[in-house]
Amino acid sequence: MARFIVKRLLFMAATMLTVSILLFGLLEISPGSVATKVLGPYTSQEQRDLWLEAHGYFRPLHVRYLDWLGHLVQGEFGESIRFKVPVAEVLWPRLSNTAVLGGLVLVIMVPFSLALGVLAGMKEGSPLDRTISLFSIVTTSVPEFASSVILAALFVFYLGLLPGTSTMASGFSWREMVLPVLVLVLYDFGYVTRMTRASMVEVMTRPYIRTAVLKGLPHRRVIFRHALRNALIAPFTVIMLQINWLLSGVIVVEFFFAYKGFGSLLLEASLNQDLFLIEACTMVSVLVAVGTQTLADIGYVYLNPRIRFS
């Protein structure tokens, strides 16, 4: 087990390293365009050269990469072109805002979708199963931007119950959180529900469930002790990987509701060619994605004695 964890962590580090090389190649390979982005298009070649000289851009490529990587690892991402402050200063507050949003989504979505999935999968083809399955297909079919528009139209325009933006201008407000959280939960719970259901359905057809029934165990014990323990292994991985999808959804939702989070920051940076901010945001989002994947892999092995003891 310990060897496996070390292996996974090394693999994670290798992935991050490769991503950093890709990113460097994509954005930093030609100093000319870096200078243009940093100093703006209306600067003279001399000005750019001076800036490049001062920031060491005329050194050999691998030296520049290692230097860049060193700064990245220490959290020194450079200065944001748009915000005129060090990237870290804008990045961390935005990241914590998004963590609040994502955390709320997970806290609501996970128990909800697991419960529905297990209920549906316990008896395949029952009316309850069909209803839950259809409901989860419908909600996963409505993309986040569409449900944002539809829910905003309903709750803000027609009913006037909720605010249409979530800028948190006057401090944290639960009311402003409702719509963003709702949109993300709606889109994401369906997938987890369907995966949980599929896993449960599969487990319920297994001979060991039949054996448990024929041992005369009460139905509750068959479900809770024998079925769930197996059926929840797959959804665990799905939920961890869902965090990767959540990062995509967060961009859309924060953009629509003007929530000051990491997603809208990344988008803003991209649209404004804010080079160092893009780099920082990309590395952070890949770190989160790869990190949850690593956790998912380790958790999967931990939950599965068949792999744990072989």
Binding site: T15, T18, S248, L266, T282
Partner: peptide, 13 residues
């Protein structure tokens, strides 16, 4: 490697 990117981040990039 490709799948380790959040998909929308990849598209935006």
């Amino acid at each position: 490697l490709v799948l380790s990117f959040p998909v929308l981040v990849l598209y935006i990039l």
